[in-house]
């Protein structure tokens, strides 16, 4: 509350060009939500985000599970995973532009690269954290590999997998934003560049606020899903 009033005062004093007041942003937001271009932009941006994220999950979870289950695979893959984890993904974007051009596919690739590693790494951590005594117990009762996987490893790793999904979604949204800021042709990122360039700061703030809200809503949904599917433990998750 304090922050909002401070915002309002600051905005009126500094001048709308640089820092719009809260009320102005609110007005811009209302106008935006009824404009079809804005809604179209949201759709376009999220198209890339959703597809990219789903691909990242589809690729990352199996990789994570595999490298977590088989220590040798883990030791071989980990250096590369660590490197990927540490690379600022934005530096890979020019590569994607080169390979895929500047279209939807390219943006999907960027979103994928932002989310993939986190989904994989968390799934791997979940697998590695399986209680050895539980595995031994199942073995002693004669469990086959597939049974071990579905009845012991997978449920045990589920909280971590969910944490990976939660973090992956956040990263996917970030990737969506970065992709558009760099490639700019469509979507919310393009609007941001446009508003920023033409100094329509109230619309700029409103658009950014929309993105932030979307991120928060998705995160909230992911957390609720996490609680429903894996209520017995909420994993901190690797970020």
């Amino acid at each position: 509350m304090i922050l909002l009033s401070a915002w309002e005062i600051a905005g009126r004093r500094v001048g709308a060009l640089i820092f719009p007041a809260f009320s102005q942003v609110l007005v811009a937001w209302v106008k935006l939500s009824s404009s079809p271009e804005f809604l179209k932009a949201i759709y376009l941006s999220n198209e890339a985000m959703v597809i990219g994220f789903l691909l990242a999950a589809a690729a990352g979870i199996p990789l994570g599970l595999f490298t977590g289950r088989f220590p040798l695979a883990g030791r071989v893959a980990n250096p590369y995973l660590d490197i990927f984890l540490m690379t600022p993904t934005v530096s890979l974007v020019p590569l994607f532009i080169m390979i895929f051009g500047v279209g939807l596919v390219s943006r999907i690739a960027v979103v994928f690269s932002f989310a993939f590693i986190f989904v994989a790494v968390n799934a791997q951590a979940g697998m590695k954290a399986t209680e050895p005594s539980l595995v031994e117990m199942a073995h002693s009762f004669g469990a086959r590999e597939s049974q071990l996987f579905t009845r012991i490893y997978l449920p045990s790793a589920l909280p971590a997998i969910m944490a990976g999904i939660r973090i992956g979604i956040s990263r996917a949204v970030a990737g969506m934003v970065v992709a558009e800021l760099l490639m700019g042709a469509v979507g919310l990122g393009e609007l941001i560049s446009f508003y920023g360039g033409s100094f329509k700061t109230d619309y700029l703030f409103a658009t950014i606020a929309t993105i932030v809200c979307e991120g928060l809503i998705l995160l909230h949904l992911a957390q609720r899903l996490e609680l429903r599917l894996a209520p017995w433990k909420v994993s901190e998750g690797i970020e």
């Binding site: 640089i18 820092f19 956040s170 949204v173 970030a174 969506m176 934003v177 970065v178 800021l181 941001i192 560049s193 920023g196 100094f199 700061t201 700029l204 703030f205 950014i208 993105i211 932030v212 991120g215 928060l216």
Partner: peptide, 12 residues
């Protein structure tokens, strides 16, 4: 929130 989204504000 995706921190990258705030970059345009910072630039402004």
């Amino acid at each position: 929130a995706p921190t990258a989204a705030f970059i345009p504000i910072i630039v402004v």
